[in-house]
């Protein structure tokens, strides 16, 4: 570890929490203000990508539970499909969200408890899982490359 690495490492480590906060904020404010599951997922994934860039994939994966990222994408998509098509079971068109228009939404702070928010969460998982998955694949491929060189 060269001394020139110390600063980026410290900054990357310190930034992880704020980045996560921003991601959560973007998601929670989804319905009321700028931001949604897609943006939140991208921000969170960028936070993880930063760790990969600074620490390398081995160390990044040691302290972050991202090995199962592709699974998160799969779960997210399955969740999205389930939420989107569940109304079909009761005879409604797909993507009929609850509670229906005109009714009051229960709120948990800023977070609305509506199925459209749950769908947004599914998109969050898919985007996050996909980006982190690709970053992982590239990181491991890069290692292979340097080993062969």
């Amino acid at each position: 570890m060269s001394p020139s690495n110390v600063l980026p490492r410290a900054v990357a480590r310190f930034l992880l929490l704020p980045i996560g906060m921003i991601a959560v904020a973007l998601f929670v404010k989804g319905l009321s203000s700028t931001g949604d599951g897609f943006a939140a997922g991208t921000v969170a994934a960028l936070g993880v990508a930063l760790q990969y860039v600074v620490f390398g994939h081995r160390e990044a994966e040691r302290c972050l539970p991202v090995r199962r990222a592709p699974l998160a994408a799969v779960v997210g998509l399955a969740l999205g499909i389930a939420i989107g098509f569940a109304p079909l079971l009761s005879g409604d068109p797909a993507f009929t969200h609850l509670p229906p228009a005109g009714e009051k939404v229960a709120k948990l702070g800023t977070l609305e408890l509506a199925t459209s928010v749950a769908f947004d969460a599914a998109i969050f998982l898919t985007v996050f899982g996909m980006v982190v998955g690709i970053v992982r694949e590239l990181a491991w491929a890069a290692e292979q490359e340097t080993e062969e060189a």
Binding site: G30, L31, S32, S33, T34, G35, D36, G37, F38, G76, L77, G80, I81, G84, A94, F95, H97, P99, A101, G102, V105, E112, A114, S116, V117, F119, D120, A122, I123, T126, V127
Partner: peptide
């Protein structure tokens, strides 16, 4: 009506949810 002040989010998760799902796929 979709409980949203942010139109883009309402479009993505509600009005055109099927498109979003296809893109996620």
């Amino acid at each position: 009506a979709a409980h949203a002040q942010d139109v883009v989010t309402a479009i993505l998760s509600d009005f055109r949810g099927l498109d979003t799902l296809a893109e996620a796929t």
